[in-house]
Design a protein around this nucleic acid. Structure first.
Length: 862
RNA sequence: GUCGGCGUGGCGGAACGGCAGACGCGCUAGCUUGAGGGGCUAGUGUCCGAAUGGACGUGAGGGUUCAAAUCCCUCCGCCGACACCA
């Protein structure tokens, strides 16, 4: 026999598979389609263990589904625009493109060495002109549909990356997601995708995503943050306190507390703040609050523990419910970019307002009181204000009864209460307000002041304003000869920058911002369905045939960013008529790109995420060099369930090396070959004491194991229990080992052949090279084609069962004995046997009840 | 603070409400080998017992059930997301 030598077989099969198009998709097929997608890599360096894990999981699903008769689309590509390329190029003295494409080639070679079953003819690279041109085309479509806006607003600026960031890219209390620098707020004119137009749909359709982890849906729901309440209009008074025509609207989720509003707040950045106080003795105070809010970092300002700063503007507004005049204050806990930048403060019903009122000595009249609060007795019927301060140490935000609230007094109050609805109806009838919904989600800021990205196809003309590049002039080609090391930019690159206005023909200039790299990854899964299209981003028929992606696999770090943006893109493209035609149904019709999502856990070492900066990286190439790709793949699948974190263990890796060697030897042994180790020591030591009846028993055991394990592996792969699928294959291998202790003369040749074949087929999705060699060379089945084009083995569940079955006998739920009965023994017989077996434990007591659970146990209640 | 998730041997982890600890790692003993590695055999939750065996056991406490790691409630601990969002 030959020894298992991964290095002698892996590369050979990789080349043969590629030459024979084994992994290539056949577009015309009567097989049902199945789209397996793994998040494509960013080419920032070598392939790491996280990639290996992600892609090994996807490869098992892909190969398994192929064996089950599906036409499987399993593509790969690179998300290759982005800032790291620029930084690395500057550091290494190369160009972003050179750095990017060199890394792509390294990663491509590594992925091939791992034997993943990608269709290499469909590779999509986002920095290729053939791809990003369609990103511009889609941008233009979105512009036509009013989904693109250029506007000035307070945006997140990363001083280190020297670019603005989307809200979603500000992480960990105000830090840049890439470089972790504290982010600053700046008022800048920028490009936005109007993702908020889809806020409702993005939130509501989460309910359709039954194949997504609850956790991810929860995170997206929180991020979108829909609040239901009312807009309420307050009338502004002039300097003398006389009501004017000017109205300030606020948003509240607690209209039921309107009668308890005792002061009014503006964000420091609110344009009214200075206007109201200008030239008065209050101006200095207002300016001080503004100053402190502006200099505080986002981190300081958003920390809930921070003491609230405030200043009175000197002016008043009228509470529409009570007609009371309320002082208008400025405070830094009011945010300009949520709601209207103004707030009705109800200190008895909101903890922040409560703290502010206590600090500045403002009244705290109770308005919604807990049903068992002693205050209720004295206020139960008070419709007018009789109490201006509560004896509480904190605000009460729960449900209760409304007091001091005019005609609403005595009604149930609280969030979404009857009282809330009544107050909204009352406001609406008088034109003072109406029901309203607000979202936490902001529009997606997509412009980046960087070179290495997809140019925004827009032109600035002095006369015509902002003009889109006409479709026939697309694409806007990103010039590759921009010397970023010398500090050159798109704006300083004249051939790019200077352009004639497509409308009036006068000299104009191009937009020099590029698009956020997340715009590139928001539709790549659509391009894979039609990667070589030169007239459209993708053909609608191809997209409709493959979408939604049946199984998407990737890291939890994209729970909000990429997954939310992709959902938005798909909905936008559907509404632009580019996919999900009239016959679309289900998720495709909803514009949902991903039917099932698996978020894989991280690979850790010493309890920490592997990272170059921590120096705790185990390189995949190292493991491959030592044990081969199959061992690494099986190991990483076996060590933990796919969605849990995985702690790297060298011993575990060696365990899998031993396992694959055992499989290898077993296949030889099952063919009757004497197995030896690498030094010629005989390892096939038959147990000559075994006789024909042992052979029959072990044969039945092996046959049952074959049928049981096939079913188990099927169920496990379908449910992503890949670790237990491998455990089941190990059990089969163990049963085979027991069988091959039989001397050759006692073995059943047919059973041996079946066992070898089953073992190889079941393991094929996880260990593709080793099983291919065993299938094609050792078992000599090459004429039937690659092991990876074979149908999945059939199994008969009845053959997985033994003739007799061992049952546990419990007394009051506690295990007391075991009995062995025929599989189909009638309950009465089983009961009788169980009672006999438990006689001693019963100690003469009469059983009150006997429960028989077929094939499992008998529980005697006494 | 709010919302999620998770607590099982020395370790990674198994268990449609039905025999807790599959499978693997590690460890112990024996066989094989000149040695090492490898292979093979047996054992490996805790406590009592020489042993057949018995008692206990899934973070803590309660509940539902013939039966709970699993379902419900309270608490403790760890992890994650969001967080001055009116």
């Amino acid at each position: 026999m030959r020894q298992y030598d991964p290095h002698a077989i892996e590369e050979k099969w990789q080349e043969l598979w590629e030459a024979g198009d084994v992994n290539r998709l056949l577009p015309l097929s009567d097989k049902p389609p199945f789209y397996v997608l793994e998040m494509f890599p960013y080419p920032s360096g070598d392939v790491h263990m996280g990639h290996v894990r992600n892609y090994s999981i996807g490869d098992v699903v892909s190969r398994y589904k192929r064996m089950r008769g599906y036409n499987v689309l399993h593509p790969i590509g690179w998300d290759s625009f982005g800032l790291p390329a620029e930084n690395a190029a500057i550091k290494q003295g190369s160009s972003p493109a050179a750095w990017t494409y060199a890394n792509i080639e390294r990663q491509r070679a590594s992925l091939k060495r791992l034997g993943f079953s990608y269709d290499w003819s469909r590779v999509v690279i986002t920095s290729d002109l053939s791809y990003y041109r369609w990103g511009q085309w889609i941008f233009r479509k979105f512009w036509d549909r009013g989904l693109v806006e250029r506007r000035s607003s307070p945006v997140n600026w990363c001083p280190s990356c020297k670019t603005v960031l989307a809200n979603e890219q500000v992480v960990d209390d105000g830090h840049c997601w890439r470089c972790k620098s504290p982010v600053q707020k700046r008022e800048l004119e920028q490009w936005f995708f109007k993702i908020t137009d889809y806020a409702d749909e993005l939130l509501d359709d989460l309910a359709e995503l039954t194949g997504w982890p609850e956790r991810v849906k929860q995170m997206q729901a929180n991020w979108i943050g829909r609040s239901v309440g009312a807009d309420v209009r307050f009338t502004l008074c002039d300097a003398e306190g006389v009501p004017t025509d000017e109205v300030i609207t606020v948003f509240t989720t607690r209209p039921d507390t309107l009668f308890g509003c005792s002061f009014f707040l503006l964000a420091p950045e609110h344009p009214l703040a200075l206007r109201l106080s200008a030239g008065t003795s209050y101006e200095a105070g207002v300016r001080a609050v503004q100053q402190s809010a502006a200099t505080a970092t986002a981190i300081e300002r958003e920390a809930a523990e921070r003491e609230k700063q405030g200043a009175f503007t000197g002016r008043y507004v009228v509470n529409p419910a009570t007609n009371e005049k309320l002082p208008v204050w400025v405070s830094d806990y009011v945010l300009m970019d949520y709601g209207t930048g103004a707030v009705m403060a109800v200190p008895s019903g909101d903890q922040r307002d409560f703290e502010f009122a206590r600090k500045y000595g403002l009244p705290i009249p109770p308005v919604v009181v807990k049903r068992d609060d002693p205050l209720l007795a004295e206020l139960a019927t008070a419709t007018e204000r009789v109490l201006d301060d509560v004896p509480w140490s904190e605000a009460y935000t729960g449900p209760g009864l409304m007091v001091q609230s005019g005609e609403f007094t005595g009604m149930p109050g609280g969030k979404d209460s009857e009282g809330s609805e009544a107050v909204i109806a009352w406001l609406q009838a008088r034109g003072l307000g109406e029901a309203s919904v607000r979202f936490r989600l902001r529009d997606w800021l997509i412009s980046r002041q960087r070179y290495w990205g997809n140019p925004i196809p827009m032109i600035h003309c002095e006369d015509c304003g902002i003009v889109p590049v006409p479709y026939e002039d697309l694409p806007v080609v990103l010039p590759l000869d921009v010397d970023v090391i010398a500090g050159e930019t798109l704006a300083s690159h004249k051939e790019f920058y200077e352009v004639d206005c497509p409308v009036c023909g006068k000299p104009a200039h191009r937009e020099t911002d590029t698009m956020d790299t997340f715009t590139c990854s928001s539709w790549y899964y659509l391009r894979y369905t039609d990667p070589h299209n030169t007239v459209l981003p993708f053909d609608a028929l191809a997209a409709d045939a493959w979408l939604p992606v049946d199984q998407y696999i990737g890291g939890i770090e994209h729970a909000i960013l990429h997954l939310l943006y992709s959902r938005f893109f798909t909905k936008g493209l559907r509404d632009a008529g580019l996919l999900g035609g009239t016959n679309a149904e289900g998720l495709l019709q909803k514009g949902e790109p991903f039917a099932r999502l698996l978020t894989q856990g991280m690979v850790k070492l010493g309890g920490e995420t592997m990272s170059k900066s921590k120096g705790n990286v185990v390189a995949p190439e190292e493991a491959i060099a030592r044990y081969g790709a199959d061992v690494l793949r099986v190991y990483i699948l076996f060590m933990a369930p796919p969605d849990k974190d995985l702690e790297w263990s060298q011993e575990g890796l060696e365990g899998i090396w031993r396992f694959l060697n055992r499989v290898w030897r077993s296949v030889y042994d099952l063919r009757g070959e004497r197995v030896v180790d690498s030094e010629g020591t005989l390892l096939s030591l038959y147990d000559e004491s075994l006789d024909a009846s042992d052979a029959a028993a072990r044969g039945r055991e092996l046959e049952r194991a074959i049928h049981r394990v096939i079913g188990k592996v099927e169920d496990d792969i379908e449910r992503f229990n890949l670790n237990t699928a491998i455990a089941a294959i190990m059990e089969l291998a163990n049963t085979i080992s027991a069988y091959t202790k039989l001397p050759l003369a006692l073995r059943d040749a047919e059973l041996c052949a079946q066992a070898a074949e089953t073992l190889v087929l079941l393991l094929a999705p996880m260990a593709p090279h080793c099983t291919e060699e065993l299938w094609s060379e050792v078992l000599g089945k090459a004429q039937k084609g690659s092991v990876h084009t074979q149908p999945w083995p059939e199994h008969d569940p009845r053959k997985a069962l033994a003739e007799t079955v061992e049952l546990a006998v419990q007394l009051n739920g506690k295990l007391k004995a075991r009995i062995t009965v025929p599989l189909d023994a009638p309950d009465a017989e089983v009961k009788a046997e169980a009672l006999e077996a438990a006689a001693a434990a019963l100690e003469g007591r009469e059983p009150r009840k006997v429960i028989v659970v077929k094939g499992r146990l008998v529980n005697i209640v006494a």
